[in-house]
Design a protein around this nucleic acid. Structure first.
Lengths: 128, 128, 128, 128
DNA sequence: GTGGTCTAGACCACA
DNA sequence: GTGGTCTAGACCACG
């Protein structure tokens, strides 16, 4: 659990992604208490305000719930909200850009064989 | 041919990509003279400094050739350089990130059908 | 009887309002003993300190009377005090702000029909 | 144009409201450039970050549009968005709370005469 | 010049 | 103890 201070992505966003992935993977479950702002700031060796910004973001978007004077908790709809948000972003931004690149670079089935394998594996996985 | 002023990507980068893609697709050929900074600035409705920055970038990466007092031209190795650079970036950054997202979102063949079609079409294209 | 942990209003204030309204509506009468701090804390599922703060507030504003070693009681002037305080606050703060919003949003008789009905019903109520 | 440093409402929110009202009243029109963060900070005698927060808020909610390196502008849908947001908040929060208060205080037509007059005037205003 | 991020530290209300 | 706001100032990319 660490942060890339050199990345183009803001630290507060990296922390947000980190937390969201923990929720998606079930390491943080619905209703769980999130570490306090001060705790997480210490863990990531980051300023308190940076973590606060992450939490405010996740609070606004409905992933967190805030109980006054107690702290933040994983909201009931957290998984749903995260998955929906990421899916929308994927089909709106990532996929078109990716397609544009393979077109421009004229990449073929051979170049992208591992990608195709992975897509088919996801399929199998789901059918189990 | 336009620019997204709201995008997270720098405008000078958007213009650079635009020009590189024109070169890859053969709309701008080796040896062609590049429009002057002020022309392109007018076309994109953008500050001249922004275009200047794009040109400096493409010049120093070897895509452009600067003939003093005359202007910029598409360098001989432009296509080669661009393709190499973009291909490297694709396999180093874009593809792993894309695969990661597919995994997290558990997308299957059906979700990504259009993508697969495009990859196969690229294959055909190349066999011609 | 419950509390909104997400509200912007402090929880101790929500509880205070709740109690005051019970007094105004006659569900808690003058001279009645107030439940102990720990009882109320259990009922609202709230920290004892929070209830303590509510009681301190109502005590110092004269709504409660503290009989040492016994507990808190609804003071003789409770109804009078609450009504006066809330009325003042209403005409000083709430009403002007409400009018301001009606103006900005250009709300008309139709939009506010339920409100007008309620005001007229209050009239009838009083004439009985 | 000033800010109440003692108010319970955060400064950044007061500034946001201030700007939204200017837009609703037509003093700031669609497409107008907003003063830079630094300018407004100086005007309100407030820290740059505070104004930045206001602008980020209005940007996210679609009231502002951000052109990289140039500044913020009043978005096309600004009026629509503000009006919609305020109307929803009014009917969801303010109106029920207001009704609750006039019920508890048993206020009648006489007490609220000025309010009723204003509602009827809004009606007339609209019919013109 | 523009906005955007981060830090450090003070001060506050609330539980 | 919790989060929330504000300040002051540094540093960055972009136009």
């Amino acid at each position: 659990m660490s942060v890339d201070f050199k990345s183009a992505k803001g630290i507060f966003l990296q922390i947000a992604e980190n937390i969201c992935h923990q929720i998606l993977e079930g390491r943080l479950k619905i209703g769980n208490k999130i570490p306090s702002v001060r705790e997480l700031a210490a863990e990531f060796e980051v300023n308190r305000n940076t973590v606060l910004r992450t939490y405010a973001l996740l609070d606004e978007s409905g992933v967190f719930e805030n109980r006054r004077g107690i702290g933040f908790f994983v909201s009931e709809k957290a998984v749903e909200i995260i998955r929906k948000r990421e899916k929308e972003a994927f089909f709106r931004d990532d996929l078109p850009e990716f397609i544009q690149k393979i077109r421009v670079l004229q990449l073929n089935e051979t170049d992208l064989a591992p990608l195709i394998t992975i897509i088919k594996n996801n399929q199998l996985y789901e059918n189990k």
